[in-house]
Design a protein around this nucleic acid. Structure first.
Lengths: 90, 90, 90, 90
DNA sequence: TAGGGCTACTTCCATC
DNA sequence: GATGGAAGTAGCCCTA
C-alpha cells in the first residue's frame, strides 16, 4: 500500500468527502456572490433616492401571493370554525 | 335551544378552546419575559467586560452531555483527517 | 497566595463569570420548562379534539395586532407612493 | 400632460423602481436555486454514508480564517479554565 | 424520511 | 464609529 494506514476504500471515501465539501463550498461562494449583488442593487437604488426598507416590503408582498394565500386561507378557515363554535355559546 | 344549530357541546368546545388559547398565551408571555431576562444578563456580563459570544459557546458546551460532545468531536476528527489525506493525494 | 497562579482579581472575574453563566443557565432552564408546558397544552388540546395548527394560527393572529398594524401600515404607505408614481407613467 | 399631477420625472422614478425590484427578484431566485443545489449535495452525501452535521461543521471551520479560529478558541479556553477555577473554590 | 415549527445566529439598518 | 434593535436566514428537532 502506498501510505502507512489507508486502504483503497478509505481513499475513495476521503476523496468523495472532499468532493462533496468542495462542491458545497463552491455553491456557497456563488450564493454569497449573489447576496453581494443584491446588496449592490439596494445600494444603487438607495443612491438613486429609493428607500431600501420600502423596497424590501414590496418584494415581500410580491413574493407572498402563493404562501400568503395558503396561510390566510387557513387562518380564515380557522376563524370561521372558531366563530361557528363561539356562536354556539350565545 | 335559542338558535338553530348550536348545542351545549359546541358551547363547551368553544369555551375549552378559548381556555387553551389563553393558557398558551400566558405561557408565551412568561417565556418572552424570561428571554428578556436572559438578554439583560448578557448585557450586564458584557458591561462587566465579558465576551458574550464566548459565554454562549460555553453554555452550549455545558449543555451537551460529555458523551455526545466526545462523539461529535470524534467524527469531526475522522473527517478532518480524511480531508487531509485526500488533499495530500492531489 | 493560595494557589499557584491566580490573584484575587482573576478570582473575582472567574467567580463573576461563573455566576453569569449559572444565572443564564437557570433562566434557560425555566424557559425550556415553559416551552414544555406550552407543548403540553397543545397536546392536551389535541387530545380534546382541537387542531394544534389552527390554534397556532389563532394565537398568531391575536398576537399580531400591534406588529401587524405597524408593518401593514408601512407596506400600505409604500404601495400608495409606488402607485402614485406608477400612475405617472400612464 | 395627460393627467394632472405626474410629470416625466415621476415616470422615470417609477420605471427605475420597477427595474430595481425586478433585478432583485431575479437575483433572489438564483440564490434560492443555489440553496436548493446545496441541499441536494448534502442529500447525496448523506445517501453515500456521510454525516451532514459533521460536514457542516467542517465547512464552518474551513470558512473561518485560521487566526480568527485560534483567537476564539483561546478565549474559550481562558473562560473554561476560569470556570474550572471558580468551581474549584466552592 | 420528509415537512413544518422552533430556536439561534448572523446581518443589516438606524440611532447616538 | 459603535451599539442596539430588527429582520432574514440557516440549522435542528420532532411529528406525521
Amino acid at each position: 500500500m502506498a501510505d502507512g494506514h489507508s486502504g483503497s476504500s478509505e481513499a475513495v471515501s476521503a476523496g468523495q468527502l472532499l468532493q462533496f465539501i468542495e462542491r458545497i463550498e463552491r455553491l456557497e461562494e456563488e450564493k454569497s456572490g449573489i447576496s453581494d449583488d443584491i446588496k449592490d442593487v439596494y445600494a444603487e437604488a438607495k443612491a438613486t433616492g429609493f428607500d431600501a426598507k420600502a423596497m424590501r416590503a414590496i418584494i415581500r408582498l410580491r413574493k407572498k401571493p402563493r404562501s400568503v394565500r395558503d396561510e390566510e386561507e387557513a387562518i380564515l378557515e380557522v376563524y370561521l370554525s372558531a366563530l361557528e363554535e363561539a356562536e354556539g355559546t350565545r
